[in-house]
């Protein structure tokens, strides 16, 4: 059986992990390579790095982190944040990334999905979507870190992205992100039912039950979180044991 995946997400700025880390057993928890290695041996199934740097100087530092991470860990990892062009894809894939996720750039230029899928294969192209429920109860796609509503319908955009060649979707719900009250189950399920590629749920994990809910009721193929792992509120091994005891297929 294919296992459901648990994916820690590391936000990286200027060569350091941000968003808080609470580890007493690692010396330099802000070093993304060290933290990635820790998670890889702590049974994370995959990792995501988000580059939240703005300047071009810092881009080279980030590329160097990608290279070092590829040298260090032997599980897959995805890079997201600030990818605008096929050249960005090129740089990251050559540095050793397994997949690259695009968000705003895909909205601005949907052909980028297609071009990247043709060059690297769909399995390397991840469509990341920030979504928020509107007053009519439907879900809109946001860009620019959740600040700008595109007016696009989330479900339609997911389908279109997959038709263009995206091999996976990361669905981040703005309403639930950081609130730790659980993932948005309905939109996650709706999208997972509507596309034939894996869907990674993101935003809202606070307890182990939240992971269970989104991987079962929410029909997500994987669940991503940052803070509950970084703050050691949830240990990935414990989480997986819990999920397995509840009948969810996980890699232990």
């Amino acid at each position: 059986m294919l296992a459901k995946r648990i994916i820690p997400c590391l936000d990286v700025r200027n060569g350091r992990v941000v968003k808080g880390t609470k580890f007493t057993d690692i010396k330099d928890v802000d070093d993304p390579v060290i933290l990635a290695a820790y998670y890889a041996q702590a049974s994370a199934d995959e990792l995501v790095f988000y580059d939240i740097t703005a300047s071009s100087d810092e881009r080279n530092i980030f590329l160097d982190i990608v290279r070092k991470t590829a040298d260090t860990i032997d599980i897959p990892f995805t890079i997201g944040g600030g990818i605008r062009s096929l050249e960005d894809f090129d740089r990251l894939m050559k540095a050793g990334a397994d997949k690259v996720s695009i968000n705003s750039a895909a909205v601005n230029n949907p052909q980028l999905i297609k071009e990247a899928a043709l060059r690297y294969g769909s399995q390397c192209v991840v469509l990341s979507m920030d979504v928020k429920r509107n007053l009519e109860g439907k879900w809109d796609v946001y860009v620019k870190g959740g600040r700008e509503n595109t007016g696009m319908d989330a479900l339609e955009w997911a389908k279109r992205g997959v038709a263009l060649g995206a091999g996976e979707i990361v669905l981040n719900c703005i309403d639930t992100d950081g609130v730790k009250m659980g993932y948005s189950l309905d939109i996650t399920r709706e999208i997972s039912d509507s596309v034939r590629v894996p869907v990674i749920a993101s935003g809202g994990a606070g307890t182990m039950e939240h992971f269970y809910d989104v991987l079962t009721e929410g029909k997500a193929d994987a669940a991503l979180s940052a803070s509950v792992f970084h703050f050691k509120e949830i240990d990935i091994n414990e989480l997986k044991k819990y999920l397995k005891s509840k009948g969810v297929e996980v890699r232990i």
């Binding site: 296992a3 034939r196 590629v197 894996p198 193929d221 994987a222």
Partner: peptide
Amino acid sequence: DSELKVPHMGWNQ
């Protein structure tokens, strides 16, 4: 199989 997600992506036994 239309029930399956494709690519077959992830950890399998």
